[in-house]
Design a protein around this nucleic acid. Sequence first.
DNA 1: AAGTACCC
DNA 2: ACAG
Length: 220
Amino acid sequence: MTPDLFESVAPPLPGEAAAEPLAEGAVVLRGFALPAEAALLDGLQRVVAQAPLRRMVTPGGFTMSVAMTNCGALGWVSDRRGYRYAPRDPGSALPWPAMPQAFARLAVAAAARAGFPGFAPDACLVNRYEPGARLTLHQDRNERDFGAPIVSVSLGLPAVFLFGGRERSERPRRIPLAHGDVVVWGGPARLRHHGVMPVKSGDHPLLGGCRVNLTFRRAA
DNA sequence: AAGTACCC
DNA sequence: ACAG
């Protein structure tokens, strides 16, 4: 039996989901996070207990619809002064919670599976989308260098991910994402615009009426 | 512009 | 469409 034929018949092993190409340097790993589901939810609970979710304000003075917190050495924050990475939670002046081991392990494994070995994330942004919450098309460009990929883990309610181009004017692709899906983009795709359509109301067995996204980056 | 407003 |  050839390796090709075997792969086509065998069920995917845990953590070895098929890589669905999105663009050069970008893939969707369907269900990749499912084997770590319980550990991820446990880590999420601990992070949110220590650094509460809050809706940040953009430089333009608007309150974001997505509630955010962070874990790891650095956290992404926004206020009237701008977007940046900070070592402490502005709400408590305490360092962000440590990145749970299950988070880091999953992010590193997903990056490697997507063709980015050696990913060493120092920042994990936790985004909570209640019904109607969205992110307009944007680029991740507050990191010091763009050599490392972005790893995005979807949990809870489904959502439509927008994946655009380097130019904001390029019409984005619409990618449905479900609980457990992981999107990775880097290399030539690192600076592509992306966003999330308004999340529809629903009820997820584990997360209830919300979507949670974990975004892993190398910020410094 | 990680946002909202307004027009069709 | 719109500005910082």
